[in-house]
């Protein structure tokens, strides 16, 4: 998967889970500050990514921005 494909996937899930406009979700968006997610929202985003991409993610991996999520997912997908 390319970084763009992963970003699109993350964006879809974030839009669905957080009920935010798609154009608000950018690589440098801070998940908690800019997108107003709390810890359970992050759980749910990680859970959805795990299910859809068949990977295992730790919630406390220190992800802060969308880019952090994309990088972390890319690393796990590439390692599969």
């Amino acid at each position: 998967m390319t970084e763009q494909e992963i970003f699109d996937k993350v964006k879809d899930i974030v839009v669905e889970q957080l009920d935010v406009d798609a154009d608000k979700v950018k690589m440098d968006s801070d998940i908690k500050e800019d997108l107003e997610a709390d810890s359970l929202d992050v759980f749910e985003i990680m859970n959805e990514l795990e299910d859809e991409l068949d990977i295992k993610l730790e919630a406390d991996e220190g992800v802060k921005t969308i880019k952090d999520v994309v990088d972390y997912v890319k690393k796990e997908v590439d390692a599969k």
Binding site: S39, L40, F43, E44, M46, N47, A59
Partner: peptide
């Protein structure tokens, strides 16, 4: 383990 239990319950 909050996240594991959350995931278990929602799945």
């Amino acid at each position: 383990s909050g996240r594991d239990v959350y995931k278990f319950a929602t799945h």
